[in-house]
Design a protein around this nucleic acid. Sequence first.
DNA 1: GTGGTCTAGACCACG
DNA 2: GTGGTCTAGACCACG
Lengths: 134, 134, 134, 134
Amino acid sequence: MSTHIHINPQSSEPIFEQIIFQVKDAVAGGKLSKGDKLPSVRELAKEATVNPNTVVRAYECLEREGIVIRRQGAGCFISGNKSALNLKERKNRLNGLLKRAVTEAFHLGFSQGDIQKAVNQSLKELRFAEKRDK
Amino acid sequence: MSTHIHINPQSSEPIFEQIIFQVKDAVAGGKLSKGDKLPSVRELAKEATVNPNTVVRAYECLEREGIVIRRQGAGCFISGNKSALNLKERKNRLNGLLKRAVTEAFHLGFSQGDIQKAVNQSLKELRFAEKRDK
Amino acid sequence: MSTHIHINPQSSEPIFEQIIFQVKDAVAGGKLSKGDKLPSVRELAKEATVNPNTVVRAYECLEREGIVIRRQGAGCFISGNKSALNLKERKNRLNGLLKRAVTEAFHLGFSQGDIQKAVNQSLKELRFAEKRDK
Amino acid sequence: MSTHIHINPQSSEPIFEQIIFQVKDAVAGGKLSKGDKLPSVRELAKEATVNPNTVVRAYECLEREGIVIRRQGAGCFISGNKSALNLKERKNRLNGLLKRAVTEAFHLGFSQGDIQKAVNQSLKELRFAEKRDK
DNA sequence: GTGGTCTAGACCACG
DNA sequence: GTGGTCTAGACCACG
């Protein structure tokens, strides 16, 4: 497999955000690990038939979040680092994220149990550094 | 308290979406219930110092989602209805929502336990029709 | 032919609803299909001599109904999807729609046979996925 | 039973239009016939807890359509007349009405057969002057 | 060049 | 007084 990134041009989600999420998802799911090299801008642009500038933008965002490191002439690599934000800010974001998601789920008509199950399902697909549940 | 809606003009989140989320949050949290009247377009626009059209837009979106009903000359009221989408669509959206949130939480460096705790905390703040937690 | 959309500014029907109906009609009649691009907001606004915001509003409504997908920088495309509403809601709407239309037709002085013929005529102009007429 | 008119204040349909439709529906269904008296403006306003001006407006519209006749001091009566429009205009309206309804039904995902069945169901509830089916 | 968001302000429809 | 529709025009985001 060359890349794990597939763009859905039908989606109303901006292409650069699709790229960002797929990289984050691949890292969270263990398909990409520290040191792995992402495809070059040109390579990914060609494969996914998107504008190279769009790929550049996605990689820039990923670098700003600390998920990748771009090295001149060498390429773009998974940093393996976790967020550099302080605990307070991280907690703020965590709570905001989940409050949003849970509120939307409520309005979709799901119960507490439904939501917890869906969260656990999503968690199972991720590869946490220290596995703490069986 | 006149309204529960406060706008952060600094936020990168569009104003109309801030309004939408705050209404959804108030409904999910039981602060607004079926039949309750939202502030009038002009009233909220004045209070939040935003353009009336921006409020109209938020109310239109809430109506399309079935959360409020707007009545000419009367105002905008909480419908009390849940989603009219079919189960497949609702499950798709639920999974998408939570997968995104959980992946972001992972990249913030939180563990499975941290995420589950934060979800449970968010769930506790909502007012589900039939309380099912143990 | 550039666009199929023509606005009647004399009509009491709001302009944005005229646009919506003409797009729905073109899709139902097979003139627009999945993936087809609608004219850009500015292009249609110029052609139909209406304000771009009015076109935006029509496109927003069509997106909420799932008929089109709007993509930043790319344009507005026919989704090819059918309604994501649940069966109960769809039946409610179907019955409401037809009861209204049939009652109005009655008051125009038409017989059952006239109405059925007119319905069949309208049906013949649509392009259903699987043709089932005898 | 005093009146057949019940207003749903929850609905986003304007109240005066709810009144108009219910009168039309009662006439088409044979519950109201030529010469029958509608409740007085004050009576209906009180029963339905709506503004008298709203009732006046509905009655005015019904008179303009030729469905009722208002007689000073006496009240508002079903005329028993059919539309006074010429055949061409009536056919235009019939086709427009049904084209709209059928197009919306298409986008709700119903088949030709579903739509025909729903039309026949609606037709069965009406009382045509000359019964022409079994 | 494409759509997205927002402000400002006019005039109309409902009750 | 309430919301509904529309125009005009600014500035931003995506590709």
